[in-house]
Design a protein around this nucleic acid. Structure first.
Lengths: 208, 208
DNA sequence: ATGACTATATCTATCGATTGATAGGCTGCT
DNA sequence: AGCAGCCTATCAATCGATAGATATAGTCAT
């Protein structure tokens, strides 16, 4: 039984363990990481019900039974993927209180992260995909998707509070919601129309 | 072989045929309609990959082989559901040139239709769900989802042109995109947070 | 009006493929 | 010795789809 099962983020511990005690090269990726990366790619295309253990296994170059060794159930794997995605996203966002960057710059930075997801990866936001199928998701996957949005909104509220220190809390909250909703919606519409330009237009309109 | 296979909207012909020649009561629904209604409900919860012919059959009270009689493949059924959804939505929108209603009222009416979907049905917009999994969809289902957004945008552009007759075309287009994106995004975020209040806040913010 | 034919809609039964998941064995590092 | 990581082999369940039978009703020629 792999340690990755113990807790939500424990695969990170494994990776650290591998890097430190097994002297893996920095560029090398553990199997657990490869599984998560492959599952993220598949999930962002077809959602939770749109990928299988055997596809992931083939992507990574192992057998589906070995994927189960790292993540016993599909719920475990999918939740771990969503949490890893959220962690990576929040880390890329950085500190919302960072005084070396203006609130306006930070909002631009936020939009830029979404832009990268859809332009460079050519894929929707993972948690946007999951959000659209929440009623059909195993509980912990839905909770993980929800966590992405809660953290996003909290980050944006912090930035907007800096921008308008005297604004009412509900106005701050509404401002944060509008930014997330517009960007997620922009990805959705842009994906449906298969037009990256649509996203660019909408993202740019946020800069006023 | 059921007539429903011949063309995209031909199941409507069947229904008319039934109503006229078999003297069905106005409230009675044909099996084809029941199948579409059940599939829409399931699809709005779990997406294309999140429902099965057997589930639909059980919902309607027939066998899965009988569902195949009305819609040979899952692609056929799913595309028909998306088209029926779009037709119903556009019909509810009405004429964007209707002079008895101001552009502002029409935008409010547009938002209200989205509100009803998520508040009354408690479900996402069908084509929003499909849009999030476009890369994993059979071709004709993706095309049908795309059609929903194209028609929505065209309707909004007509309304916005009335509101600002001298605005540049790209500004009109951007305005239409912003409304769709914000509302679809609002549904997504509201679904993830399982908070209808989030949607209400965002929809109301559109009224300025 | 009756009988032959056709079309629709449902059924039972089943197909091959795929799904998530499990049991148990082998290997090699610690 | 013991565990991590991967394997083969397999399970029961479910998937979309097909074949073929049956019942019913409408069409049409006689």
């Amino acid at each position: 039984m792999c340690i990755a099962h113990a807790a939500a983020n424990s695969y990170l511990l494994i990776d650290r363990h591998n890097i430190v005690s097994m002297k893996m090269a920095k560029t090398e990726t553990s199997t657990t990481e490869k599984i998560i990366a492959a599952a993220e790619r598949r999930m962002r295309d077809g959602g939770f019900h749109g990928y299988s253990f055997r596809e992931i296994a083939a992507d990574v170059g192992i057998k589906s039974a070995s994927v189960h060794h790292h993540f016993p159930t599909k719920e475990d794997l999918s939740a771990a993927v969503a949490e890893a995605y959220t962690d990576r996203f929040m880390a890329a966002l950085g500190d919302p209180e960072d005084r070396s960057r203006s609130p306006k710059e930070l909002i631009g930075h936020y939009a830029e992260l979404f832009r990268r997801a859809i332009i460079e990866d050519g894929q929707m936001c993972l948690c946007g995909v999951l959000a659209s199928e929440v009623p059909g998701l195993p509980p912990r996957v839905g909770v993980a998707a929800r966590g992405f949005f809660e953290q996003n909104i909290a980050w944006l509220e912090t930035v907007l509070k800096r921008k308008s220190p005297r604004a009412r809390p509900d106005q701050i909250k509404l401002g944060a919601l509008k930014i997330v909703a517009l960007l997620e919606g922009a990805m959705l519409v842009s994906g449906a129309l298969q037009s990256q330009e649509v996203f660019e237009l909408l993202a740019k309109s946020l800069q006023e």
